[in-house]
Design a protein around this nucleic acid. Structure first.
Lengths: 216, 216
DNA sequence: TTTATATGACTGAGCGCTCGTTCAAGCGCG
DNA sequence: CGCGCTTGAACGAGCGCTCAGTCATATAAA
C-alpha cells in the first residue's frame, strides 16, 4: 500500500494578509500574538477573549494588532495551525527510519499520547474552537488533522502483511489510524474523569494493549 | 464486581426556576422551547442563536420566553440534559434481561452506535457547547455523560470472568467502557471524513471487532 | 553635519451595532 | 377587581473593527 502524502505547510503564513511590509517583523510579532492568544483562549475561550485583551497581553494597541492580522477569525486560524504544527512535528520525530515493527508502532503511540498529555489544553481548545472558523479555514484545519492521522495509518500499513503480522484491509487500517488519533485526544477531553483513575503511563499501557490486541 | 449506579434524573426540571405557576404548562411550553432551540443551536451554534430567534421559533415573545426560563445558559442546560436523556434511554432499551454474553455486548454496541448515527448532530452539539455551561450545570452534564459510559462498563463487568471470558481488572473495564463511548461519538465528530469512507454498518462491524478483539 | 522629507509601525478614542435581559402595560378569565 | 400569563419597546453593556493622527527612524538633499 502506498504512503499517503502529508502535505507540509510552509512556515510563512502567506494565507493570512498583513499591512506590515517587513516579513521578518511579521513573523516575530505574530509569534508573540499567537502565544498570548493561545493562553487567553485556553483560559477564557474564544468568545470571552476580546481583541483588546489580546492586544494588551501581546503588548500592542488594538490598532497595531489589526496591522498584523486582519480579523479575529484569521487569528483563530493561525492559532489552530500552530497547534497542529506542534503536534505533527512531535509525532514525526517519533518515527525512526528503521523498519516499522510492533515495538516501533507502540513507540509512536506512546510518543503521541505523551504529546496529548502535554498539550491537553491545546487539544481541548481545538475541539472547542474549530466550529468558529470560516469555511475556508475550517477545511484547512481538518486537512491538518487528517495529516496527523495519516501518520498513524502509514505506520500501520507499513507493517501490514510484513513479518508475522496479518495483511489487513485498507479500510481497517484507516479506521484504526483514526482510533489511535481519537484515543489520544480522549485523554485530553475526558480528563475530568480519566485523571482521577489513571496516570498517563497506565493509560498508555492499557490503550496500547487495546489497540494492538485486535490486530495481532 | 458490583454495578455502578446510574443516577436517574427526575423528569421535572425543578433545578431551573420559572415564573409560571402551573407546572403542567411549564412542562409543555419547555418542550416546545427546547425542541426549537436544539434545532437552532445545531444550525447556527450557541452564540449565533439569539434569544429572539428562539422566541420566534417557539412562537413566543421574548418576554414570555423569560417567564419559562431564567437565562440563555439555563436553556442551554435543559438542552444538554434532554439530549443525554434521549441517548441514555435508547441505550438502556438495548439491555436485555438475559445474561450478558459476547453477542449481547455486541448488540448493545450496535444499538449505541446507531444512536450516535441518528443523533450525530446532537452529539456534535454537546461537544461544542458544554464549555459554555456555568460550572454548576457543567458538573451535572458530565455526570450524565458518565452515566451513559457506566452502562457499558457495567455490561462489560457482568461478563468479565464468566463463561470463557477472561477476568479483567476493573481499571481495564473502566477504560474500555470509555473507549466504546468515545468511538461511538467519533462517528459523529469525524463524520467529515468517515462518511466518505464508511457507512454506519461497515463502521459498526470494524469497530466491534476492534473492541472485542482485545479482550477475548 | 545639518536639515528636510518620506516611510511605516504604532496608537486609542470612538463608531455602529448586537444581544441578553427587564418591566410597565395589556389581556382574559373567575 | 385580582390573578396568571403575555407582550415588545427600551435599556445599556459590550463587542469587533476603523482611521486620523503621532512619532521614531531611514533616506536624501543642502
Amino acid at each position: 500500500m502506498e504512503q499517503i502524502k502529508t502535505a507540509r505547510t510552509p512556515t510563512a503564513d502567506t494565507d493570512v494578509p498583513t499591512q506590515i511590509k517587513n516579513p521578518d517583523l511579521v513573523m516575530e510579532r505574530r509569534r508573540q500574538i499567537i502565544d498570548s492568544t493561545v493562553k487567553l483562549f485556553i483560559q477564557h475561550g474564544y468568545h470571552k477573549t476580546t481583541t483588546r485583551m489580546i492586544a494588551k497581553a501581546s503588548n500592542f494597541s488594538i490598532g497595531s494588532l489589526y496591522e498584523y492580522v486582519s480579523s479575529k477569525e484569521d487569528l483563530l486560524y493561525l492559532v489552530c495551525k500552530t497547534i497542529h504544527e506542534e503536534v505533527q512535528e512531535a509525532v514525526e520525530n517519533a518515527l525512526s527510519n528503521t523498519d516499522m515493527g510492533k515495538e516501533q508502532l507502540a513507540q509512536v503511540i506512546r510518543q503521541y499520547f505523551y504529546v496529548c498529555d502535554k498539550m491537553g489544553d491545546h487539544i481541548l481548545l481545538m475541539y472547542q474552537v474549530t466550529q468558529f472558523l470560516p469555511e475556508k479555514w475550517k477545511a484547512k484545519v481538518l486537512e491538518n488533522e487528517l495529516n496527523i492521522t495519516n501518520i498513524f495509518i502509514n505506520a500501520l500499513s507499513s507493517l501490514s502483511g510484513k513479518n508475522n503480522f496479518p495483511k489487513l484491509d485498507d479500510k481497517i487500517l484507516n479506521l484504526v489510524g483514526h482510533n489511535i488519533s481519537v484515543l489520544g485526544q480522549m485523554w485530553a477531553f475526558r480528563r475530568w474523569h480519566l485523571k482521577n483513575n489513571f496516570n498517563i503511563d497506565d493509560y498508555i499501557k492499557i490503550q496500547t494493549d487495546f489497540i494492538l490486541g485486535h490486530i495481532f
